[in-house]
Design a protein around this nucleic acid. Sequence first.
DNA 1: GCCAACGTTGGC
DNA 2: GCCAACGTTGGC
Length: 139
Amino acid sequence: MQYWLLKTEPETYSFSDLLREKKTPWSGVRNYQARNFLRQVKKGDLALIYHSGKDKAVVGVAKVIKGSYPEVDREEKGDWVQVDLEPSKPLPSPVKLAQIKSERRLTGLLLIRHTRLSVMPVSETEFKTILMLGAASTK
DNA sequence: GCCAACGTTGGC
DNA sequence: GCCAACGTTGGC
């Protein structure tokens, strides 16, 4: 079982949209490196959902309910893939990018090192660290 | 196959 | 709104 981080612009599709819909096909990835990672995503994997843009924070966890399969709506050329997700749980307190950057255990995250990548693997340690950071409201 | 020009993403 | 970092495209 693998851990992932999936980026999305909340204006386009947000974690709350996923909570509302209970299930969504995660498609539209148009970057080869991201696609290669997306191909490796399997049923049962867990994914951190990161909001880019205004939020810049990991806001929740989603569970993969269907591993990668060819994009359904493939008008465009290329062997793009998608996966199906369901919400697992929102983080009680979103983990901000600034927080991630300042956490020593997370300096290896591709989110930081490869800012434009939209699908990336996350180690179990990194995954747990982010969950821990997002578990408690520190206010 | 190289590289300049252009487009896109995403942080600031 | 700007710009850095990439990725893509197209001329040669």
